[in-house]
Amino acid sequence: MNPMMAARLYSSVQGGSMPSSPTPQANPAAEGPGFADMLKSVVSQTAEQTRGAEMQMAQNVQGQGNLIDVVTSISAAEASLETVLAVRDQVISAYKEIMAMPI
Rank of each mutant, 00 (worst) to 15 (best):
I92S: 02
S21I: 03
I103W: 11
E97I: 12
M18C: 12
Q64K: 02
A7L: 15
Q56V: 08
Y95N: 06
F35H: 04
S80K: 08
V84S: 03
Q56T: 10
S41Q: 05
I74Y: 00
M55I: 15
V87H: 04
E54D: 11
A100Y: 07
L81V: 06
A58S: 09
V87S: 05
A86E: 03
A6L: 05
R51A: 14
S93D: 10
G52S: 15
G34K: 10
V43S: 00
I98P: 04
Y95M: 14
E54A: 15
Y10D: 07
P22E: 11
S12Q: 07
A53Q: 10
E54G: 15
E31P: 06
A94Y: 14
R8S: 04
Q45R: 00
F35E: 04
A79E: 09
S75F: 14
P28H: 03
L81E: 00
M55Y: 13
V42S: 08
S17W: 06
E82Y: 08
R88P: 10
A100I: 13
M99E: 14
L67G: 04
M4N: 06
V87L: 11
M99Y: 12
V61R: 15
N60M: 06
T83V: 10
A58K: 13
L81S: 01
L39C: 03
A53V: 10
A29T: 07
Y95A: 09
G63A: 08
Q64G: 01
M1K: 13
R51C: 07
I92Q: 03
E78D: 12
Y10C: 04
D89P: 08
P24I: 10
G15Q: 07
K96P: 11
M1D: 11
A26M: 13
T83Q: 00
A58E: 07
A36E: 13
A58N: 08
A77Q: 03
M55S: 09
A77K: 02
N2G: 02
A58W: 03
A76L: 15
Q56F: 03
A29H: 14
I74N: 01
V42W: 01
S11N: 09
A30W: 06
Q25V: 03
V61P: 07
I103G: 14
M5S: 09
Q59I: 08
A94W: 10
D37V: 06
F35S: 04
L39G: 02
I98Y: 11
A79K: 08
E54R: 15
G52V: 09
P28T: 08
N27A: 06
P24L: 13
M101S: 15
T72G: 08
A94E: 12
A79N: 14
D69F: 02
A86L: 14
S21R: 13
P102D: 12
G34V: 02
N27I: 01
S41I: 00
Y10N: 03
P28D: 11
V91L: 14
G63M: 03
M57Y: 00
P102C: 14
S17P: 03
V13T: 04
M38D: 07
S11I: 12
G34Q: 06
D89C: 14
K96L: 15
A53L: 12
